[in-house]
Design a protein around this nucleic acid. Structure first.
Length: 202
DNA sequence: TACGGGATCCACT
DNA sequence: GTGGATCCCGTAT
């Protein structure tokens, strides 16, 4: 059951929390890859110094965050990696949820090949644990690139669906890698599933 | 297991 | 010209 536009058209922190346990699906030219979302971060545009759209910055890169909810915001970082975000809130409000980690569910071999050019069973223990436990890593594993920037998650290529019924605790903490963001670096906008081995950092 | 540095490039200034 | 919502590997412990 694919999540619809209304799921994303809500308070960004609520969306970030509710995405935990949901399943990210990428239909990559018929090759369906799935992973459970286990870690997210909220970026609240105007009032959040860590956000690309802080203070209403409106550049070409950031433009999709001003658009309708349920759209992918993918940006390139550190010269080598992509980060995958989902736009939240109504059109005109530049907020998004960064998906920081997933737990592989389907097409694990394909993910292993995308990351390490080897099938899953040939990976070292270290590589298995590091398959999708970070924003750059999960993009590499699922083959998400800037081509997906602006893609509507209510279409059939890249989307999020309901996961299995399960109970878990949500841990709230500070976001990662935003030391430059002054007071915003301590905002409790990071959420993850307690005890999940694919979370990028405790 | 924990650190430190290099990789690598595009959007933004 | 600058530096980042990151990752990997080498070295040390």
């Amino acid at each position: 059951m694919k999540l619809g536009r209304e799921f994303y058209n809500r308070d960004t922190i609520t969306v970030a929390k509710d995405l935990l346990g949901k399943v990210l699906v990428h239909n990559n030219k018929g090759n369906i890859m799935k992973g459970k979302i286990v870690e997210t971060e909220a970026y609240l545009g105007l009032r959040d110094k860590a956000a690309h759209a802080y203070g209403g910055r409106r550049t070409k890169r950031v433009e999709v965050m001003y658009g309708p909810p349920g759209v992918a915001y993918v940006y390139f970082i550190y010269g080598m990696y992509y980060c995958f975000n989902i736009v939240a809130q109504e059109e005109g409000v530049p907020e998004a949820v960064l998906v920081r980690a997933i737990e592989p569910i389907e097409s694990i071999d394909q993910m292993a090949i995308n990351r390490f050019k080897k099938p899953y069973e040939e990976l070292t223990r270290y590589q298995k644990r590091n398959l999708t436990n970070g924003p750059g890593k999960l993009c590499m594993a699922l083959n998400i690139t800037k081509e997906h920037n602006g893609l509507d998650l209510c279409e059939d290529t890249l989307y999020v669906e309901e996961g299995e019924e399960e109970d878990f605790n949500i841990i709230t903490s500070k976001r990662i890698g935003i030391d430059y963001a002054e007071e915003a670096k301590d905002f409790p906008y990071r959420f993850y599933i307690e005890g999940n081995p694919y979370v990028s950092a405790k």
